[in-house]
């Protein structure tokens, strides 16, 4: 059980009469990039909040690196989280923000400074590192948020739309960084609407629709299954977008988990 990076069983979250996440069961191995897809309002963010201990599940269980999400103190040392809006202070500079995050995590000062420098350089932020964040563009803020989320080398990083607001070059850097992190055995739980990113990076994809997991598998398997179940498009193949549209059709969906 504890070998899994993320494990949920019957995970459910209700707000009053509304069910945001319904009976979600996941098993994610360590070092995997898990692409978490779903239309707006499907319950992706709520799922991430439950897995990061920010919202309590209404029913079911969830474990991250073997620790129950009901136990915040046990889970938080193992995770990093980039929410949709980067959790950074406008008044600090990029470098100060990252030093603050390192301090809050109690990272050794020298090692933290080295890591911050290298990450700033990697994301082309060194030149602006001593400017206040309120003068940053959306993409620059996003970069600071991502660096902050993985600065302490967590076992599992939850990234909500990490490429949002990034220009093509920065988006590529982000994809390469995520791939590197996964190579270092970090599990990445990646939520995004940008399907090519998931197609390129994800080892496994889960598609959430109306709170339920309606498809799961590696990108190629999902595409093959979609191909088998529908007429191929004009180019003769099926894209991840076709799969996504098919399984999240609001009129009717078919459970296509592998």
């Amino acid at each position: 059980m504890t070998d899994l990076a993320i494990e949920t069983a019957g995970l459910t979250k209700r707000y009053g009469d509304e069910t945001a996440v319904d009976d979600l069961s996941l098993e994610i191995e360590p070092g995997v990039v898990y692409g978490f897809l779903g239309p707006n309002g499907a319950g992706k963010t709520t799922t991430m909040r439950m897995l990061t201990t920010l919202t309590r599940p209404t029913a079911g269980t969830a474990r991250v690196v073997g620790q129950s999400v009901e136990n915040r103190d046990a889970v938080t040392p193992h995770i990093g989280y980039l929410p949709e809006e980067p959790p950074i202070y406008d008044e600090l500079t990029g470098r100060e923000q990252l030093e603050y995050a390192a301090g809050l995590r109690d990272l050794p000062e020298e090692a933290a400074c080295e890591r911050i420098e290298s990450m700033l350089e990697r994301f082309d932020l060194l030149e602006d590192a001593d400017k206040r964040i309120d003068a940053y563009s959306k993409g620059m803020r996003q970069k600071v948020g991502v660096i902050q989320a993985v600065l302490h080398d967590p076992d599992v990083a939850f990234l909500d739309e990490p490429t949002s607001g990034l220009d093509p070059r920065a988006a590529r850097t982000m994809r390469e960084t995520i791939a590197d992190l996964a190579d270092r055995e970090m599990t990445i739980f990646l939520s995004t609407h940008i399907l090519p990113v998931v197609d390129e990076l994800a080892d496994t994809i889960g598609v959430l629709h109306e709170g339920r997991l309606v498809a799961e598998g590696d990108p190629e398997t999902l595409k093959r299954r979609a191909e088998a179940g529908a007429v191929a498009d004009a180019t003769g193949g099926r894209t991840l977008e076709d799969v996504f549209l098919e399984v999240t059709d609001t009129d009717e969906y078919v459970d296509q988990r592998a």
Binding site: T52, T53, D73, T76, G80, A101, L104, R105
Partner: peptide, 16 residues
């Protein structure tokens, strides 16, 4: 407010 997710997912963040 916007930093709460980072603080609450940091060990001892609330107390700190």
């Amino acid at each position: 407010r916007v930093a709460l997710p980072a603080i609450l997912t940091t060990p001892g963040g609330r107390t700190s």
